[in-house]
């Protein structure tokens, strides 16, 4: 089942008198349950493409659809709504809100989604339990270890039942051991719960863990490798 369909997408930026083709005619289909990486050197267009998929930017031409919903014809507030309901984000360095507890950091997504408060507990606690952080819900981020913060960040990304979780260079600011544990955590959610992940990276360690590697170069898909 198609989760994301990217058809003939281009994204151009005007730099002075020059037009930069950051994404240049890309066709990709991401299926439900994939664990995929957009790989390529700096400037290859992976972050731009991730921003387009996440509805943070609009393509110059072409179409992106998520769960059959086309993004190009949507107004900004509709894009925000799609982003809120269909996409989860894992940020570099987690970006937890320091004045909120672990529970409240995860709950924040449900509040913004407008999920009735009486349902919050039943939605949040199973995820915290799955991720092994049940019992820590009243702690603030500074009272959590690095690994626990990591799990809260991932819980926040998946609590809204997104169609796909996007991560832009998720290991960029992490040491190799912490990177490994974050990747393991995302991989477990993928294999055990079927959560779809797409991340951009140029880290060989991340690419080794991905089940599908889409290589970009000069804004185009150079190769699309699927592993067994």
């Amino acid at each position: 089942m198609e989760t994301i369909k990217i058809s003939e997408v281009t994204k151009n930026f005007q730099e002075g008198e020059h037009v930069v083709h950051a994404v240049n005619g890309v066709d990709i289909t991401i299926e439900n349950g994939e664990f995929a990486a957009l790989a390529g050197p700096s400037g290859s267009g992976k972050t731009t493409l991730l921003n387009l998929i996440g509805g943070l930017d609009r393509p110059t031409s072409g179409e992106i659809s998520i769960d059959g919903t086309q993004l190009s014809k949507r107004k900004d507030n509709e894009l925000t709504e799609i982003r809120l309901r269909k996409i989860g984000f894992v940020f570099q360095a987690y970006n937890l809100i320091p004045v909120l507890t672990a529970y409240e950091n995860v709950q924040f997504v449900l509040q913004v989604q407008g999920v009735p408060e009486r349902e919050h507990h039943d939605r949040i606690m199973p995820i915290l339990e799955d991720l092994g952080i049940k019992g820590l819900e009243n702690r603030f981020p500074t009272q959590l270890s690095g690994g626990q913060q990591q799990r809260v960040a991932v819980a926040r990304a998946v609590v809204g039942n997104p169609t796909i979780v996007l991560a832009d260079e998720p290991t960029a600011n992490l040491d190799s051991e912490t990177s490994k544990s974050l990747l393991d955590l995302m991989r477990r959610l993928n294999t055990e719960k079927g959560v779809t992940f797409l991340f951009s990276t140029h880290d060989p360690m991340v690419i080794e863990r991905a089940r599908r590697v889409i290589r970009l170069r000069d804004g185009k898909v150079q190769a699309d490798e699927r592993k067994n």
Partner: peptide, 8 residues
């Protein structure tokens, strides 16, 4: 080998 959501 990873085992379930939290085992290894």
């Amino acid at each position: 080998r990873m085992v379930g959501m939290t085992g290894e």
